[in-house]
Computed example of a mutant assay.
Amino acid sequence: MSLPPTHVAAVTPDWAFEREHWRRGHFRVAGVDEAGRGAWAGPVTVAAVILPGSAQDYPFRDSKQLSAAQRDRFAQEVRRVALAWAVEHAWPEEIGRLNILGATHAAAHRALERLDPPPQALLTDYLRLRTPLPLSAPPRADALSYTVAAASLLAKTERDRVMTELDREYPGYGFAAHKGYGAPAHRAALADLGVSPVHRRSFAPVARLLAGSGGGGLLAQPRPDPR
């Protein structure tokens, strides 16, 4: 499977980072990546993936380089070929309690704990997890490593699915379109509708709106099941 010419990535992933672990006898390398760290609403979503250590080529790319249709198709392929995979969310309450980086780490550890078979080494996109396992955390790993690119596909597609569900539960904010990020339409909806239960109240744009309204403006609707 190859990418259409209009979506050929400037950088093609390979196995260079994984091979460093393979040389040390660590053949189950889990790639970890997240989606939604900078959004104003919804969860931060983290995926962990172990691919077969056969050094074959895959169509997987950093999810940001692909169309939505490609991401969905390639995410299905990741789930089909992976030795193990898991996806976890950290919701706004946890983000507010731990801060966004701490919540991302917590979700990453939950995803890693669910992998079966368990990983022998970790490879992340500059996410320096606290772990006894050998860890490589190079920048741009989602574009350079097949394993991290696979994780980026699962994290992005799962979070997009969640945000589309939240769009139906909290209509008017446009979550299905902007996925909770700070688009002008999102800012306008916040000013018009107030802050929903799935907004990150610790994030500055949302916190400012709450401060200006005296802490009100929360919609009296149930928060969705985080699972």
Rank of each mutant, 00 (worst) to 15 (best):
M1N: 15
S2Q: 13
L3W: 08
P4H: 10
P4S: 10
P5R: 11
H7D: 14
A9S: 15
A10L: 15
P13K: 04
F17L: 12
E18H: 11
E20H: 08
H21L: 12
W22D: 03
W22S: 02
R24G: 12
G25D: 09
H26K: 12
F27S: 14
F27C: 15
V29P: 03
V29K: 07
A30W: 05
A30Y: 04
G31P: 10
D33I: 00
E34W: 08
G36V: 00
R37P: 06
G38L: 07
G38V: 10
A41R: 03
G42V: 04
G42N: 09
P43T: 01
P43W: 00
V44D: 01
V44A: 02
T45V: 08
A47N: 05
A47P: 05
A47Y: 00
A48I: 04
V49Y: 08
I50P: 02
L51I: 08
S54A: 15
S54K: 14
S54M: 11
A55W: 15
Y58G: 12
P59I: 05
F60Y: 05
R61F: 04
D62E: 09
K64Q: 08
L66E: 02
L66F: 08
A68P: 08
A68Y: 11
Q70F: 13
Q70C: 06
D72N: 15
R73I: 15
A75V: 04
R80Y: 14
V81L: 14
L83A: 10
A86C: 09
A86R: 05
H89G: 07
P92Y: 01
P92R: 05
R97W: 15
L98W: 06
L101I: 12
G102H: 04
A103R: 00
A103M: 02
H105Q: 11
A106G: 13
A107P: 06
A108R: 01
R110Y: 10
E113N: 13
D116C: 13
Q120R: 08
A121W: 07
L123F: 03
L123D: 02
T124L: 03
D125I: 01
Y126W: 15
R130N: 13
T131G: 02
P132W: 07
L133H: 13
P134K: 10
L135Y: 07
L144A: 14
S145G: 07
S145M: 11
Y146T: 12
L153N: 01
L154D: 02
L154H: 05
A155R: 00
A155I: 00
R159N: 00
R159H: 00
R161W: 06
T164S: 15
T164V: 14
T164A: 15
L166P: 07
D167W: 01
D167N: 12
R168P: 10
E169V: 11
Y170I: 08
P171I: 06
F175H: 08
A176M: 11
H178L: 05
H178T: 06
H178R: 05
G180V: 00
G180P: 01
Y181I: 04
Y181R: 05
Y181K: 00
P184Q: 10
A185T: 13
A189K: 11
A191R: 11
D192L: 14
S196Y: 03
S196P: 03
P197K: 06
P197Y: 04
V198I: 09
R201M: 09
P205E: 08
V206T: 07
V206C: 03
A207S: 10
R208P: 09
R208G: 12
L210R: 03
G212D: 13
S213M: 14
G214W: 10
G217D: 01
L218F: 12
L218D: 04
L219E: 13
Q221F: 13
P222D: 13
